[in-house]
Structure formats: C-alpha cells, structure tokens
C-alpha cells in the first residue's frame, strides 16, 4: 500500500537515507530500529508524505507522491493512521474530540459516532477520561489516545513513532497488544522504536520483521534478536 523504491533523502548537505526499498503490504508488521538520529522519523515522514524523497519514488496506494497535490495527500493520509512521538493533539479540545477529529476533518462524522467513539475509548482504556484535556493526561494515556485517533478512520496502514517512548513496561505491552490486534485485522503496521525488549515481546504475538537503519541504509535484522 505504501512502497518505497530506491528512496534517498537528505537535509541540505549529505544524505541521511539512501537507496531504501520497502513495501508495506496488508497484514505486514515491521519494526524500524536504529540509533537516535539515524533517520527513523525521517523515514516515517517519507511514508506519510510530509517529506518528498530527493531521489527514488514513494508510492502511496498506487500513486507516486510527486504527482499528488495537497488535497490528494490529505485524502491519502486518511488511510494512514499515525501515532506521533509527541502525540500532536489540539490542547483546547477534549480527548474524545481529539480522537474523533479525523472523522470531522474527513467529513465522515455520522450518527453512530458517539457509540463507536465510546467503544474505541473503552478499547484503549480511556472510557473514564473522555472529557479530559490532553495536558491533563499521563504519558501512557496520551499514547493510547494517539493510537485511538490513529485508528478511528479504520486506516489501511498504521505508522507509530516511538509509541512507547515515555510509558512504563506494562503500558508498552498493552500498546503492543493493541497494535497486534490491529495487525490481525489486516492492517499494515510499522513501528519505529529503539526498545529491543518491545521487539522481543512482539515476536511472541505477531510475525514481525525487524528493519534497521545503519549507515544510511535499511537492513533486515531479523534473526539475531
């Protein structure tokens, strides 16, 4: 659904990523690791079309990103759920409103939303925090809310950038099982993380491939973990 073909990207001088080829197909589960600053976030930005590659091609749902205009990109993003490292909420709206925002933005708000939203809040364990503002939530609650927002449009692809960055181990495992559940429903999942324990824990639940960014290139790092 999202395919990278020989993609390179550089900020000004020198390349950060080069010659990257990857295909995120339905039902796949990828981990992306690498040291800080190795380009994990940049890689994800290329996937959700915030950045356009300096060389090579990124295709989203069959279309080359370079040929897409701003509205095409907006429409494609509705099929991609993103969990950001810093969550990116609108702080003046309640958690429930933030989670439902993609529906309003996509013009998909409908009558059964209230029920669906309640079910979703329950699924991520935030049923009793629906009216709270984002700054009032703990780190783990925010991460789960971000995941709920990422999946409310029932996207085909879920991209998560360090989703367990500032939560404890119990919460990490819960987030992981939520992602595994989504993966079993056929979503393509890509999680950027440097948490090797998380990757080991995942191996028991899903058939995940582990990718590593090293020396600007993407390598398959499966078996040694």
């Amino acid at each position: 659904m999202i395919g990278l073909e020989n993609v390179s990207y550089g900020y000004g001088d020198g390349e950060l990523l080069s010659g990257i080829t990857l295909d995120l197909s339905p039902g796949s589960f990828h981990f992306l690791t690498g040291p800080s600053g190795s380009g994990k976030t940049t890689f994800l930005k290329l996937c959700y079309m915030e950045l356009v590659p300096t060389a090579g091609h990124v295709r989203a749902f069959g279309r080359d990103v370079r040929e897409m205009d701003r509205d095409d990109i907006a429409r494609a993003r509705r099929r991609i759920g993103i969990v950001h490292q810093d969550c990116q909420f609108l702080d003046h709206l309640s958690i429930a409103e933030n989670i439902a925002l993609p529906l309003a933005v996509g013009g998909r708000a409908g009558p059964d939303d209230a029920e669906n939203l309640d079910a979703l809040l329950g699924w991520v364990g935030l049923g009793n925090r629906a009216g709270a503002l984002p700054p009032e939530l703990s780190g783990g609650e925010r991460q789960r809310a971000a995941l709920a927002r990422a999946v409310i449009m029932s996207p085909d692809v879920i991209l998560a950038d360090e989703p367990t960055g500032n939560v404890d181990w119990e919460m990490s495992k819960r987030l992981l099982s939520l992602l595994a559940e989504l993966n079993r429903m056929g979503k393509a999942i890509l999680v950027a993380t440097h948490d090797l324990n998380l990757i080991r824990a995942a191996k028991t639940k899903v058939n995940a491939r582990v990718l590593r960014i090293s020396d600007r290139r993407l390598q398959l790092a499966g078996a040694d973990l």
Partner: peptide, 9 residues
C-alpha cells in the same frame, strides 16, 4: 495537526 490527520486545505 489538522493536515497530518488528513484535513484538506
């Protein structure tokens, strides 16, 4: 944020 969750201009 709105752009990232798929808002058109």
């Amino acid at each position: 944020v709105l752009r990232l969750i798929g808002a058109q201009d």
